[in-house]
Nucleic acid binder design. Sequence first.
RNA 1: CGCGGGGUGGAGCAGCACGGCAGCUCGCAGGGCUCAUAACCCUGAGGUCAUUGGUUCAAAUCCAAUCCCCGCAA
Length: 306
Amino acid sequence: MKIVLFGTNEFSLSVLKGLIDNHFEVVACVTQPDKVNGRNGKISFSPIKNFCLDNGIPVYQFKNLNLEGEAVLKAYNPDIFITASFGQIIKQNILNIPKLGTYNVHASLLPKYRGAAPIQRAIMNGEKYTGITIMQTELGLDAGDMFLKKQIEILDDDTFSSVFNKLSTLGAECIVEFLNNFDTLKSKGEKQNDSLSTYAKMLTDNDYLINFNNTSINIFNQVRALENCYFIYNAKRYKVKACKPNIMHGKAGEILACNGKIGLIISTADTSIEIITIHPEGKQPMPAKAFMNANKFRQGDIIENS
RNA sequence: CGCGGGGUGGAGCAGCACGGCAGCUCGCAGGGCUCAUAACCCUGAGGUCAUUGGUUCAAAUCCAAUCCCCGCAA
């Protein structure tokens, strides 16, 4: 079975490795164009590209996949396309190429959280479960028929990274199971109930800004879902890498404690959150208790979100 | 040549525009004190001020070059 994998990030890579470790024939990969790192001007390759280069797998980066890719991919005479966190829309002329179809490894329990940021949105919303769905890749956004679904629990101490890692592993397991039982599972395809579908919108800068007028649990979920949330204090940006709800309470945004013994506690709409790990501009991430030793914060100040 | 911040005892920072004893909050070690606390009090150890060169009677501080870390933007 000749497979072409479309993917970019570590999730895609986990799926690719799963295929190779289980002796599927991956004849080529398609990944996003290289990105330029603005600070040092260096070019960085996607994880998929690095792996392919190291392992002698042909890898393609089309500026316009739908125009340039058709002839190239047809030449491989592929049986199946697998997509996993590819990040580009694939048009019908490409989807039609493989004999057995194109299938997607999606990191949510469809029809919930279709779209670009399913893991983050699920954690942000305080979901208790998420999972992997293997489904038909169609023009419609993650709306194709479903063939295999597996769920995992989102624990209170899970973060984006931990869920991402679990789902990367599970995604690889699912695609292998799907391909090993292709005929059976393919025949048992299930339509998505569109009326139950939700959309995991792409993340914007505004999603990362912490609003202390929200409740503690919402901020807690936001921080662990995105891991790079921030607030602004004295015109400086502070990223919150980890926090936990606290029982103290004051005016929303009020700094309730800021010293090396207790750390940093900021009031929310209902109670407060304790900042565990903070990342000031220009510095390394560090324990909030350590940074509080520097006396940059003043108790009683209100953090506005502008 | 995209914009910007930073490197100072183990941690986090101040000091630098104007050169003149290495400072603060913690941690650590020893001692004291309290029914108790984010406890408190006393004492102590611990520094190549990123690197290299220059200016100077004198450099963490001024000049030149280099290395490393990070934020924004993309």
